[in-house]
């Protein structure tokens, strides 16, 4: 049931994309998003799409997994599409019915917007699919490192993120279990008015919170036992190092962004 959620899951692998430094991938994602939002016509969209397809191929992530991850987002996608189709003013009217007018511009805009969201999400998925959450937090911590000088708790934040990621599956499983147990005592989560349904959540939320606090407490003790004292004096098993492929990745990212900006300026 709840266990099937794949959002933000990591698929271990050995592709070039997997082996890139997480910092490279993070920076690259930023470049990619900027390029995506700069793109303003068929050619630049096509360019970004071609690039995305290329990365997917290289990463060897099965297309099926990416499509499956999209499922929870179908609603947002359709909503965006409808909004754009119906509420974009334009000159070439395709259909006019009652107060609804659909224009060619609206349809084009809807397609663009949906493509943009799809590509944005796919790109982000690729990052989380090919980067272990730990590498990701390490990368973030390293990139945000300079902020430590401003007394921002960068290490603590990344540690928190790491632990949150670690406990999400555990807590999902636990929620599942508690729901089943309360259902076995006749709790009803599906029927009744909104207020009744909100009330029905109490028997789930109370045990879930209590258990989360208990876990947090035990984890804190266990971490202390393993000599955790915060970020100071801590070393890392895996040091982040840029390699040849990272350079290629930066270069191709720069090329992509350059091309899209050029296309935008010349309005092609």
């Amino acid at each position: 049931m709840l266990k099937d959620i794949t959002l933000g899951q990591f698929f271990p692998g050995d592709s070039i994309i997997h082996r890139l430094d997480p910092r490279t991938k993070l920076i690259f994602l930023v470049i990619y998003i900027v390029a995506l939002f700069t793109a303003s016509n068929w050619i630049s969209y096509g360019l970004v799409l071609a690039f995305l397809i290329f990365v997917i191929c290289v990463s060897k992530i099965p297309l099926k997994s990416i499509v499956r991850g999209m499922k929870p987002l179908v609603f947002i996608l359709i909503f965006t599409g409808i909004l754009n189709i119906f509420f974009t003013a334009g000159e070439t009217v395709l259909v006019s019915f009652w107060i609804i007018t659909i224009t060619l511009e609206g349809v084009i805009r809807a397609v663009f917007m949906m493509a943009r969201i799809l590509m944005l999400i796919t790109g982000t998925f690729l990052l989380t699919y090919t980067t272990s959450p730990i590498a990701l937090t390490d990368g973030l911590e390293s990139l945000l490192g300079p902020l430590k000088k401003l007394h921002l708790p960068v290490h603590e934040l990344s540690m928190m993120m790491c632990i949150a990621l670690r406990f999400i599956p555990t807590l999902i499983e636990e929620t599942d279990k508690i729901m089943c147990a309360q259902k076995a005592r006749g709790a009803d989560f599906e029927n009744g008015s909104l207020i009744q349904r909100v009330k029905a959540l109490v028997p789930i939320l109370v045990p879930l919170f209590i258990s989360a606090f208990r876990r947090a407490d035990e984890l804190a003790t266990a971490m202390e036992c393993r000599c955790y004292q915060g970020g100071e004096g801590r070393t890392k098993m895996k040091l982040l190092r840029y390699h040849r492929w990272d350079l290629y990745a930066f270069l191709s990212g720069a090329l992509l962004l350059g091309a899209v900006i050029t296309l935008h300026i010349f309005g092609l």
Partner: peptide, 25 residues
């Protein structure tokens, strides 16, 4: 066991203690 494993990759978790001791990678 669920409440004492810190990281979500086995080897990263085993490394947690030695990392706290400040040992070279």
């Amino acid at each position: 066991p669920d409440n004492q494993i810190v990281a979500n990759v086995v080897e990263e978790d085993v490394a947690f203690g030695p990392e706290n001791l400040g040992i070279a990678s």
